[in-house]
Design a protein around this nucleic acid. Structure first.
Lengths: 132, 132
DNA sequence: GCTAATTTTGCAAGTCATTCGCATTCCTGC
DNA sequence: GCAGGAATGCGAATGACTTGCAAAATTAGC
């Protein structure tokens, strides 16, 4: 594990939400080149240390977001607030059964699934209604 | 409804699966400029005629895929085969209840959700196992 | 510890989807 | 037929991401 990879993994372990490459590049503990960030993230994801998904948001455009996989290779799904751009963890994925059902029904094998919500979080709803 | 928008809507109505901008540009019935395609798709999506999602696939990169919304504003979810790149319709979205539950639990308001599966379809699994 | 081989990194240029500015064309109402 | 606003085409720009290549770092062998 090289210095660049270790620093990225560490930052993502400490993070409470998925981070984009641009967020990682701005982080003080990440001091490597952007090409290295991309390469390291690929490396770490392939090794099962990280999870990622592509999210499009009007303000930030289309970006890939990375988060650490928890111990048991469990992954979370997320709600993304389009106002404050924070993520809310919806908890571990509960789709195992549904995926199995679909696999049986259609005969395909699911290697990956993407699921997330977007909208406005409770805090932003309040501040919008009071300041507008 | 202009000629460009009508042709795009028509092609997507006839399509059995979501189409990317590059697929639409290659379609014989779509004869307008790519900037017009992007602008028209935005227009049609905003008016509720279309649904879209961003999917990343190793072979085709990251692209936005568009499909027509059915009559009752029902939308489908899809399985994407990473071998033949076809989509399989998983049927109408059944997540209304789940979304409501999450909204109550976390206090946010969901304006959109993204869900799709990727993997290898039955046909591609067969042809792979027999020709490898 | 020292050198050769392998891997990783930085830099700069390239790719690809998507967007934007602007001039031209189309459409609608008069 | 004509004026005015909307839509389109064209080409350049943007931004996320990738790649080639040489330098730096890590590893292996002695």
């Amino acid at each position: 594990m090289t210095k660049a990879r270790r620093s990225l993994l560490h930052v993502l372990e400490q993070a409470s939400e998925p981070l984009s490459v641009s967020a990682l590049l701005q982080h003080p503990d990440v001091s490597c080149n952007q090409a290295t960030v991309y390469r390291s993230l690929h490396y770490l994801e392939q090794r099962g240390y990280l999870d990622s998904f592509v999210l499009h948001c009007t303000d930030h455009g289309t970006e890939r977001y990375y988060s650490c996989t928890k111990e048991q290779a469990e992954h979370s799904h997320w709600f993304h607030c389009t106002a404050c751009h924070r993520f809310i963890d919806l908890g571990a994925c509960l789709m195992k059964e549904d995926l199995k059902r679909w696999e049986q029904q259609y005969g395909f094998t699911v290697s990956d699934h993407t699921f997330f919500l977007t909208g406005v979080c409770a805090t932003c709803k309040e501040s919008t209604s009071s300041t507008d």
